[in-house]
Design a protein around this nucleic acid. Sequence first.
DNA 1: AAGTGGTCTAGACCACTCT
DNA 2: GAGTGGTCTAGACCACTTG
Lengths: 245, 245
Amino acid sequence: MTLELVDAAAEPGLSRYAAIAAGLRERIAAGEWPPGTALPSEQVLAAQQGVAMATLRRALELLAAQGLLERVHGRGTFVRASLAGAPMLRFFRFGDGSGEVPASRIVSRRKVAAPAQIAQRLGLAKGEPVLHLLRVRSLGGKPRLLEDLWLPLPMFQPLAELPIAQWEDLFYPMYAQRCGVHVQRATDEIGFGTLGAAQAAHLALPAGHPCARVARRAHDLAGRCVEVRTTLGDAHAFHYTVQIT
Amino acid sequence: MTLELVDAAAEPGLSRYAAIAAGLRERIAAGEWPPGTALPSEQVLAAQQGVAMATLRRALELLAAQGLLERVHGRGTFVRASLAGAPMLRFFRFGDGSGEVPASRIVSRRKVAAPAQIAQRLGLAKGEPVLHLLRVRSLGGKPRLLEDLWLPLPMFQPLAELPIAQWEDLFYPMYAQRCGVHVQRATDEIGFGTLGAAQAAHLALPAGHPCARVARRAHDLAGRCVEVRTTLGDAHAFHYTVQIT
DNA sequence: AAGTGGTCTAGACCACTCT
DNA sequence: GAGTGGTCTAGACCACTTG
């Protein structure tokens, strides 16, 4: 019998659990279970997929290890909500290490046609409409980080219209709430350089001052690049720890 | 028989598989299975520990995920050999990206009493004997990296006596071969600074030139810190990519 | 008390490697 | 072909969370 489930698991060469994981990943990306909500229980899913519970578990554990799901003993299995708000401070250590969230001040917001390099990083065609933002982030009243952001435009239209005064300090929760965009993972590329005159002015540093540069590409649940961001900060405040194994 | 195996698995509050993993980790650290050798088969280990094979498997998978073991389908489960030779280039990109190993030139080698800060990082008492090395690493004939190393001395005595001409370009395989020290993991702390006059001279750069600084602590199988190393390189050649999830 | 995920068992069969 | 790890099953029992 039994209902020929459209076997999302029919991928060739994949183990049963890997195929099931891939299928679940697609259904999550398609919005069947929005971020923060619970999946059906292991029992239900196992019956649905026609496998033993242990096999279904392996699929869930795989997705949990990849950061897509979060399993909570006694409660259920949940689709992970957006990334934590301000992990940018993981790269910088300014005077006060108090977990304070940097205050955000939008310096400029413009709708523009994507330059070639930005379009390529966003996975768009050159010239597609994007939202370009410049903002300064401060700690203890002192400007510390200068950020340059590019957001694809049909998707982020609500932010093109939202009054500047109503913007939040943390962007990712705002993306989720106002645009339904959930940042699920990001890639940060670290480099060192020096500040141009205009950049230096925003940070109250002399032109030519050494700076650390973090070039981020953020991706949503479906794997699309939804944000390109370049952050500059005083190189002397930069620090980062890497575990090698 | 049957020595009352000192049930390393008797830890309270640990699941059976976690306790078994901890016990195996200790036996590996104690040298029962040297790096590169195979552990007994799952069947044998399961019988030894008196658990089902699936439980034993979980223990092995845990240790494999932690990078201590390497499992090879059809061959066996192996204790991972030392870290790859020169992962320092993961942080720098000089002209040629050809996977070339940087040539090493020892600039100085001295037996000294450990300064307080070094002793602390090595987990020694201040004043304990250590080997202090300074070396320059070059690519394509050009000096690129300046390294400052501290090695605890009873342990690395063979390197205190080895003629400089016989040193290898890669240190970790040499530690393993000559001193029986196997580097299993390391922590790299990335920062930024400027070159002092002496440092700049070694790298053929002007004094005050911006540099990236990688401060490494390397640990052996038993978790002891066996090397403290600070590497300096041109800040403009620095790059590193971080995955955030 | 009911429902969830976490641990564990005692098997079966398959895929890979070596000789 | 013998031995290894990889996948999968169909259960049991435990620990945690919530009504």
